[in-house]
Design a protein around this nucleic acid. Structure first.
Lengths: 213, 213, 213, 213
DNA sequence: CATTAACCGAGACGGTACGTCCGGTCTTTTA
DNA sequence: TAAAAGACCGGACGTACCGTCTCGGTTAATG
C-alpha cells in the first residue's frame, strides 16, 4: 500500500485517492500489454493520466508499484466448501493456476521475487502483501477438514504453524514451478495427481512431532 | 550454448574459444556483484576484457547469456548414495537449497523465468538447459530406490514419466518457494519434514494408475 | 513593483506588506548564492518564509521578480560633486563598476536583458525600472557642468536629450562590456582613460546640430 | 569548438563531422524559433537528427553549445575600406547593429554573458571565441587610419594595446547597450553621432601616455 | 607466403527510460 | 479573502544502457 499515514500529513492539498486507484489499474493494464520488463513508469503514468512525479511520490520504484498492483489479485482466491479436503485442495490448485495464467500475474510474480533477492524491503513487502495474506487459505482448509474429521487437531500450535507453512510452500511452489519453470499446464489431471500425493503424505505421514530429534 | 555451428563458419579468423569462457565467468561475477537487474552487457564485456560486439556476436541478449552462464551451476548437483530414499531426497533438497543460496543463482533463476513468460525461445532455452537436464536426479533416485526395493517398478512408462515430472515440480517448487518467495530458510529440519511428507505421499498413495479415468 | 492596486483589494485578509520586502531580500540573497540560472521560485519562497503562491500572486515570474529585486540597487548610485566634470564622470564610472562587481547585480542584469529580447513587457519593465531611472545621473552631471561653465547650454531640447541618451549608452555600455563581456577590471586607470576619451569627444566634437543633414 | 584533439582519439569509430555542422546549424535555428531560454538540448538534437548523447559527448551543456553556434556569426563582420576612419567606424557600427538585430545573436549573446558571470570556463570560452577574435576589427581599422595619416603611430605597444581594448569596449558596449538595454534602434543618425563623439575624443584626447602617473 | 575473410578492440551512433527538478496551478486548512 | 502547505501536471534535465555501426588492426585457413 502507499501507506499514507493519516496522522502525519495534515495541511496542504491531500493526495488524490482517485490517482491511487487509477495508477494501480494502469499498472495492471501495462503489465498485460507490455510485460514486466517493458513496463515503464512513464507508460504507467501516461495510462493513469497522471504525472510521473505522482507515481514517485507514492512508490519508490517499479518493484514496489507492481507488488501493490498485483497483490490485490491474489485476494480473489477463495476456498468454497467443495465437500471434502481433496476437493478443496484440488479446487484451490486450479484456482491458483488460473490466476497464474493471467498475463499480469504471470509476468509480475517471478520478476518481483527475483528483484527481492537483492532488496530486503521488497522481500518484506512481498511477504506481507502476498505470502502471509494467502496462508489464510491453508488455515481455513485445515480448519474445515478438522471439522469434517478428515484431519486430527494438532495440539502444539508451533507444530501446527510449521506444518501449515510447509503445506503452503508445497502447494504454491509446485503450481508455480510446474507452470512457470517447467512450462507445463496445470490441468485437472495434474491437480488430481498432486492432491493425491499431498493428502496421502499428510494422512499417512502423521506429521512428525519433534522437529529437532 | 553459443551455438557455434561448425559447418557454417569455414573461412576467416575463428572465434576465440577463450572469450566464451571468460564471458561466462564474467557474467557470473557480475551477477554476484550487481544482481540480475543491475547487470549490464557493457559491464560483462569490460570484466571479460572483450568488446560488446563480441558478446552480441555470440548471444542474442542478456537473458540468453545469463541462462548459459547459470545453467552449468545446476550440473553440480549430485545424488550420492546415502543408503535410503529418504536420505537421498533430503540430501538433494539441501544441495539444491545450497545452490539457491549462492547469489548468482538466487538472483538469476527467477529473473530469467520471469522473462521467459513473454519469450518463448527463452522458455525453451531454460527448459533444455536447466529443467530437463536436472530431471536426471529424480530418475536416478527412483532407479536406485527401486533397486533397493523401496519403490515398486511402474510398468507404464507414461505414468512413470508423469510421476517423475510431478515429483520434480514438487521438490524443486517447494524449495524455491520456501527460499525465494516465503523467504524462509531451508534447513535440515525443514528438509526432513518435507521429505517425510513427500515419501509418505508416494508410498501410501500408490500413485493412481489411470489418469483420465 | 508588485503593483498592489489599492482600489482593487478591499475585503478579506490584506496582503502582508512585510512579505514583499522579505521576498525581494530573499531574491537578492538567492542571486548571490545561486546566480540567476540556478535561482528558483521555490528557493526564494523558502528563504522568505513564504508560500510559492504568494510569489505568483505578486509577480508573473522569475524575470519580473528579479528586475524588481535588483532595480533598487541601482538607486544607490549617486553623483556627489567632485569639483569637475571629469572627476564626476570618473566617479560614477567607478561607482557603477563597484555595483557590477556585486554578484547579485552581475548575474542578474545581463540575464534579464537577455530575457527581455523576447519579452516586450519585460523590456518595458527594465527600461522603466532601471534605464530611465538612472539617466538622472547624466542629466544631473550635465547640469552641474553647465553651472560650472564646463559645458555650453544646448538650446534645442531634442538634441540635448539625444546627446544625453548617447552619453548614457556610451558610459554604461563601455563599463558593462569591459566588465562582463571582455571580463577585464574597471580600475582607476581605465576609468581615467575612458573619461579622457569621452570628454575630449564631447568638448571638441561640439555635438552636431542637425541629425538628418 | 568541440576541440577534437586529433592526437588523442585514435581507435574506435571516429566522430561524425557532419553531426557537428548539423548540430550548430540546428542550434541557430532553435535560437531563432525559441530563443535562448526556451531552447532545449532535446530540441536541438531532434532538429539535427542526432541523439542527445551526441550533443553531450561534444559540449558540456547549453552554454558552450550556444557560444560555439553563434561565435561563427561574428566572423561575418568585415571592415571594407570606406575611404576614411569615420566612414569605417560608422560602417562597422551599423554592421554590428545588423548582427545584433538577428534573433539568434540578440537572444544568445547576453544570455551566455550572464551565465559566464558564474562560470569561469565559459567566460574564457566567450573571450577566446568572440571577444578576442573581433578585436581584429579595431586593429585593422587603426592600421588603415595610420596609413592614411588620420592617426599617429603609437610607439609604445602597451599603450597601443590598451587603447585598442578601450576603443573596442566603447564601440561594442555602446552598440549593445543601446540596442539591448536601452532598447532603442541603432540607425544611421545614431551611428554618425556616436562616431563623431568617438573620433573627436581620439583625435583631441591624444590618448595619455603614462597610465600609472 | 600472400590473400582474404571473419574476427577483434574500441568507441561513436540513434534511441529509450530513468529518476529528479522546477514551473506554475490547484486544493486544502488556518488565520 | 489571503496565507501556508503541499500535491498536482507537464516538461526538460543529464545519465545510463541498449543494440548497432564504423573504424583500424589481427589472425588463421586457403590458394
Amino acid at each position: 500500500m502507499s501507506s499514507t499515514d493519516p496522522q502525519t500529513a495534515r495541511t496542504g492539498r491531500p493526495r488524490s485517492t482517485a490517482a491511487d486507484a487509477a495508477i494501480l489499474e494502469a499498472t495492471r493494464a501495462s503489465l498485460v500489454d507490455l510485460g514486466w520488463s517493458k513496463l515503464t513508469m512513464g507508460d504507467v503514468a501516461a495510462r493513469a493520466g497522471v504525472a510521473k512525479t505522482t507515481l514517485y511520490r507514492r512508490w519508490a520504484g517499479k518493484n514496489e508499484l507492481v507488488v501493490d498492483a498485483v497483490a490485490v489479485l491474489f485476494d480473489e482466491l477463495e476456498l468454497p466448501d467443495r465437500g471434502s479436503l481433496a476437493a478443496d485442495v484440488q479446487g484451490v490448485v486450479l484456482q491458483f493456476a488460473a490466476l497464474l495464467e493471467r498475463p499480469e500475474t504471470r509476468t509480475a510474480l517471478m520478476a518481483v521475487v527475483a528483484e527481492s533477492t537483492r532488496d530486503d524491503s521488497l522481500r518484506v513487502r512481498i511477504r506481507d502483501s502476498i505470502v502471509e495474506r494467502q496462508k489464510r487459505l491453508v488455515l481455513e482448509g485445515r480448519q474445515r477438514a478438522q471439522r469434517r474429521g478428515e484431519l486430527p487437531v494438532e495440539p502444539d500450535t508451533a507444530v501446527a504453524d510449521r506444518t501449515a507453512d510447509l503445506i503452503f510452500d508445497v502447494i504454491a511452489g509446485a503450481v508455480v514451478h510446474r507452470m512457470l519453470v517447467s512450462a507445463e499446464p496445470v490441468d485437472t489431471d495434474w491437480a488430481r495427481q498432486f492432491t493425491l500425493l499431498l493428502l496421502s503424505g499428510l494422512g499417512a505421514g502423521a506429521m512428525e512431532r519433534r522437529p529437532g530429534s
